[in-house]
Computed example of a mutant assay.
Amino acid sequence: RSVYDGEEHGQFMDKLEGRIRNHDREIEKMCNFHYQGFVDSITELLKVRWTAKNCKSQVTDTNRKLQNEGKELVILMEDLKQCRLQQRNIAATIDKLTLCLPVLEMYSKLREQMKAKRYYPALKTMEHLEHTYLPRVNHYRFCKIMVENIPKLREEIKEVSMSDLKDFLESIRKHSNKIGETAMKQVW
């Protein structure tokens, strides 16, 4: 209540809006890169944000009306209650998105490592993702998809690693005569 009635109300709302904008940008980047469903969630969050701005103006209007008209007190209190409920929903949504961001960042890191052919770090990242991050948010649909993809990614790493190993061994086989000849010359 002190945030709404105090002088810091404008600063608080500016900081809240700034934080929401920062979160929105980061989330939209990740979502556009990986998950359409997550983009839908962001759209819902933006609707909630718009509703929160309306609630802010409603709260201001509510305060004025309470001073001017005692008869509408019951209706205005219900509006205030609804706004606070929406604010709690916004806070809960931000908490859930904050919980999901590290999972998406780890998955993105895994994809980058695989793209860069850094398979051992990719396996370590995959293990960390699988055992640390995914269990925290396993009830979300995008996490279930990630869990389903992990065995496929492991198999892909295995196949590529075996292919690289075979290529390496073939290269050694092709050049083994030269290597042996060079070694023999150095021994003599």
Rank of each mutant, 00 (worst) to 15 (best):
Ser2Lys: 07
Val3Lys: 10
Tyr4Val: 15
Gly6Val: 06
Gly6Tyr: 05
Glu8Leu: 09
Gly10Thr: 09
Gln11Gly: 04
Met13Asp: 00
Glu17Ala: 12
Glu17Ile: 05
Arg19His: 13
Arg21His: 09
Asn22Met: 11
Arg25Val: 11
Arg25Gln: 08
Arg25Gly: 00
Ile27Thr: 05
Glu28Val: 10
Lys29Met: 07
Met30Asn: 04
Met30Asp: 03
Cys31Lys: 00
Cys31Ala: 15
Gly37Ile: 09
Asp40Thr: 13
Asp40Asn: 13
Asp40Tyr: 06
Ile42Glu: 03
Leu46Arg: 14
Val48Glu: 05
Trp50Leu: 13
Trp50Val: 06
Thr51Asn: 06
Lys53Cys: 08
Asn54Glu: 14
Lys56Arg: 11
Lys56Tyr: 08
Gln58Leu: 11
Thr60Phe: 10
Thr62His: 02
Asn63Phe: 15
Arg64Trp: 14
Lys65Val: 12
Lys65Ser: 08
Lys65Gly: 03
Lys65Asp: 07
Leu66Ser: 01
Gln67Ser: 10
Asn68Val: 06
Glu69Asn: 15
Glu69Asp: 15
Gly70Ala: 15
Lys71Leu: 14
Met77Trp: 07
Met77Glu: 14
Met77Leu: 14
Met77His: 09
Met77Tyr: 08
Glu78Leu: 09
Gln82Ser: 11
Cys83Tyr: 01
Arg84Gln: 15
Arg84Thr: 12
Leu85Gln: 14
Leu85Val: 06
Leu85Phe: 12
Gln86Phe: 10
Gln87Phe: 15
Arg88Gln: 14
Arg88Trp: 15
Asn89Leu: 13
Ile90Leu: 15
Ile90Arg: 00
Ala92Asp: 13
Asp95Asn: 14
Leu97Arg: 01
Cys100Ile: 10
Leu101Lys: 07
Val103Cys: 03
Glu105Trp: 07
Met106Tyr: 12
Tyr107Arg: 04
Ser108Ala: 13
Ser108Leu: 05
Lys109Ser: 08
Leu110Cys: 04
Arg111Asn: 08
Arg111Trp: 04
Lys115Ile: 08
Lys117Phe: 10
Lys117Ser: 13
Arg118Ala: 13
Tyr120Met: 11
Tyr120Asp: 10
Ala122Met: 03
Ala122Cys: 03
Leu123Gln: 06
Leu123Asp: 03
Lys124Pro: 00
Met126Phe: 01
Glu127Asn: 10
His128Ser: 11
Glu130Tyr: 02
His131Val: 13
His131Tyr: 13
Thr132Arg: 04
Leu134Cys: 06
Leu134Val: 04
Pro135Cys: 08
Arg136Ile: 15
Arg136Glu: 09
Val137Gly: 02
Asn138Gly: 06
Tyr140Asn: 07
Phe142Met: 08
Cys143Lys: 01
Ile145Met: 10
Met146Arg: 01
Met146His: 00
Glu148Met: 10
Ile150Thr: 04
Lys152Glu: 02
Lys152Tyr: 02
Leu153Arg: 00
Glu155Thr: 05
Glu156Tyr: 01
Ile157Asp: 01
Met162His: 12
Ser163Met: 11
Lys166Gly: 01
Lys166Ala: 14
Phe168Gln: 11
Glu170Gln: 12
Ser171Asp: 12
Arg173Met: 06
Lys174Trp: 02
Lys174Leu: 09
Lys178Glu: 15
Lys178Phe: 05
Gly180Asp: 10
Glu181Cys: 05
Thr182Arg: 14
Thr182Ile: 07
Thr182Gly: 04
Ala183Asp: 04
Met184His: 12
Met184Leu: 11
Lys185Phe: 04
Lys185Arg: 15
Gln186Ile: 07
Val187Phe: 07
Trp188Gln: 14
Trp188Asp: 14
Trp188Met: 12
